[in-house]
């Protein structure tokens, strides 16, 4: 029977990965690497079955070939996951073993005329390209796709035996700082870019964040060039991705390197003086205006 695999190796994008898989119309087999809470969460999304490895006992990367062998037996129509590092190691092994066509940043996948059709954004999301492949496909999903909703009945969870092949082992894990942890878990984030203009406005952004219970993030130049922030506050391609319910951006133009880090936010608000700034093509709401005037008005409004 045809099926689609959803490979989940981290919590942040679990619902989005399952969401893309579910909209294919095929039964979803979930392969989960993490703690029991993550396995239970994926089981609640209406998948057919959850195969769960506890990451306390198994380093997911060491299972790549084992998972690929299983895929060779099952031959799923498609395998989807996030672009998180561990997920990509697993997908790479599967793709080579099942001889799949590979794409990244897809927004949909579905069987079509004996093959598989996927859609992905191209040209900075100005258009959606339709791609077809004759056989199995292995894909990472785009940020910001619609997430799976909880189902009435959770799927059965099968706890898998821990395995190690010994080629990779963990020596130590180092927490970098509390700021990054706060950003990863934050429901609301106030982000600032070069257009914030001055350190006084950065202080206003922090004041707004305090007033609405948010964390503060920044674009790379404010850390590297101006040294106004620690590195663990930078969000973007080469640093970290976040997925708050609300991301308020002040003075960011919307450079792709930064937007990659925030695209998974549920609602993006942009404040910028330039009405042609690319961020206005990606946000949900925007204010075309001066950050130094909008920030005080915002603080006053939420402090009432």
């Amino acid at each position: 029977m045809e099926s689609i695999w959803a490979v989940v190796a981290e919590g942040m994008s679990a619902a989005a990965v399952v969401g893309v898989a579910q909209r294919s119309g095929l039964p979803v087999e979930a392969y989960v690497f993490g703690d029991s809470e993550l396995a239970n969460r994926v089981a609640s999304y209406g998948v057919s079955h959850v195969h769960w490895w506890s990451d306390e006992q198994t380093l997911p990367e060491t299972l790549a070939m084992s998972l690929a062998s299983r895929a060779k037996e099952d031959m799923p129509t498609a395998v989807v996951s996030s672009d998180q590092a561990t997920s990509r190691v697993l997908l790479g092994a599967i793709a080579v073993v099942v001889d799949a066509a590979v794409a990244h940043g897809i927004i949909s996948v579905a069987p079509s005329d004996g093959g598989v059709k996927v859609e992905r954004y191209v040209a900075d999301a100005e258009a959606v390209e339709v791609l077809c492949a004759p056989g199995p496909v292995v894909c990472t999903i785009a940020d910001g796709v619609a997430e799976a909703e909880p189902a009435a009945t959770p799927a059965p969870i099968e706890e898998m035996e821990p395995e190690q092949n010994g080629s990779i082992k963990v020596l130590s894990t180092n927490e970098e700082g509390e700021g990054a942890n706060g950003l990863q878990d934050a429901e609301r984030v106030v982000g600032v870019g070069l257009g914030v203009g001055s350190k006084e406005n950065v202080a206003l952004a922090q004041q707004l964040a305090d007033a609405i219970g948010a964390e503060v993030a920044c674009t790379l130049p404010l850390c590297d060039n101006y040294h106004w922030f620690e590195h663990n506050r930078v969000v973007g391609t080469s640093t970290q991705k976040i997925s708050p319910r609300l991301y308020l951006s002040f003075g960011s133009s919307g450079a792709p390197q930064h937007m990659t880090g925030v695209r998974a936010a549920k609602v993006i608000v942009a404040v910028n003086t330039d009405p042609e700034a690319p961020i206005f093509r990606e946000c949900t709401y925007g204010i075309v205006g001066d950050v130094s005037k909008v920030l005080p008005a915002f603080i006053q409004a939420v402090s009432k």
Binding site: A270, V271, P275, F280, R281, E282, C283, T284, Y285, G286, I287, V288, G289, D290, K293, V294, P296, A297, F298, Q300, A301
Partner: peptide, 14 residues
């Protein structure tokens, strides 16, 4: 996107 005119910041923020 729904864009508000920030020439009147208080109204736009509201």
């Amino acid at each position: 996107a729904r864009i508000f005119d920030g020439s009147d910041p208080e109204t736009a923020v509201a």
